[in-house]
Amino acid sequence: MKAVLLHHPDGLAYGDVPTPTPAKGEVLVEVAVAGVNFMDIGVRRGQFWLEMPYPKGMGVEGAGRVVAVGEGVVDFRPGQRVAWAYGPGSYAEMVVMPATSLVPLPDAIDDRAAASVMMAGLTASHFATEFYPVQPGDIALVHAAAGGVGLLLTQIIKLRGGTVIGRVSSESKAEIARRTGADHVIVDTAGEFAEAAVRLSGGEGVHVVYDGSGPATFQGSLDALRVAGTFCWYGPVLGGPGTLDIMSLPKSIKLGYAVFAHHVRTPELLRARAARLFQWMIEGKLHPSIGQVYPLAEAATALAQMESRASAGKLLLIP
């Protein structure tokens, strides 16, 4: 079968590898679509999976169909459609993973849509329903509002009755954010968005900031918050803001680092929260935005596009 392997940092190769065999508790899946994520950039740079020897199978997210199951697997059967948010080696024609990593995929959800909402959708769900449960009337500042997480996060905030101020880097991305439901959009590349966010929130500042844009936006996000506002920081690939003096934090704000895995910390939570995303999609309340779709052999191009921050929507790979 074909797969994309990382032989050393930045050393991607597309080629033939043996088809894996599922062990006890595992499932072999034929990959229909693989999702591209910032986590994959971190793996490629050598930031993550340090304990894993080279070559490393790239990718973690996708949708497809069960080919075979290992001993003891009773929740899935050959031929069944499934999706997953974390299955290392997903940039491949086939991937093997624990059955506990899979969710059943309803017939009403196609493979591309499913692969577009697993990692980003569960991340957005965590941010807006658990880390900071948005309430009607809340005002949220969403960074990278035209990205995979930002577009889904905007929709979930709106579902919960919140107002969205989206920050994007270009006018073309601003239009995408508006179409998805952002109430206000700030076009900014210099980190000078805080004043506009405070003005758009009636002079008080926003209730919550969702910031995965790296250290350059950290201070502006602090400045955009109202008294007792919440700062949801995420995205390890771009790095953190450095050492903080907690006594210097302004306005009694609450600051935390949100990790999507904590939202789906058991198989039961993974399946329940994925099912909620799928139901929102079936009801027409959540619409994944697919950006560009590449052949699996062009994985390096897709990663470069994401890393440049030029892309909008979800990037996908097709084996």
Rank of each mutant, 00 (worst) to 15 (best):
residue 123 T to S: 14
residue 311 S to C: 08
residue 86 Y to M: 14
residue 133 P to A: 09
residue 19 T to P: 00
residue 25 G to H: 08
residue 50 L to V: 10
residue 246 I to K: 06
residue 141 L to Y: 04
residue 248 S to L: 15
residue 175 E to I: 08
residue 80 Q to W: 04
residue 201 S to I: 09
residue 137 G to Y: 06
residue 35 G to H: 03
residue 38 F to D: 03
residue 303 L to M: 14
residue 298 E to K: 14
residue 6 L to Y: 03
residue 264 V to A: 10
residue 145 A to M: 01
residue 144 A to T: 10
residue 125 S to M: 12
residue 89 G to D: 04
residue 221 S to D: 09
residue 12 L to P: 04
residue 64 G to Q: 03
residue 215 P to R: 08
residue 32 A to N: 12
residue 119 M to L: 15
residue 196 A to E: 13
residue 73 V to R: 12
residue 56 K to Y: 09
residue 291 G to I: 04
residue 99 A to N: 04
residue 156 I to P: 09
residue 108 A to S: 13
residue 300 A to W: 04
residue 247 M to R: 15
residue 312 A to N: 04
residue 169 S to Q: 01
residue 67 V to W: 00
residue 253 I to N: 08
residue 71 E to F: 07
residue 175 E to M: 05
residue 166 G to L: 05
residue 165 I to L: 10
residue 253 I to A: 08
residue 93 E to K: 04
residue 167 R to F: 00
residue 140 A to V: 15
residue 291 G to H: 01
residue 154 T to I: 07
residue 244 L to T: 14
residue 190 A to Q: 13
residue 152 L to F: 01
residue 284 G to C: 06
residue 119 M to P: 00
residue 107 D to V: 09
residue 194 A to T: 07
residue 285 K to P: 05
residue 277 L to R: 02
residue 289 S to E: 13
residue 277 L to H: 02
residue 317 L to C: 03
residue 245 D to T: 14
residue 185 V to D: 00
residue 259 V to K: 04
residue 304 A to W: 02
residue 50 L to E: 14
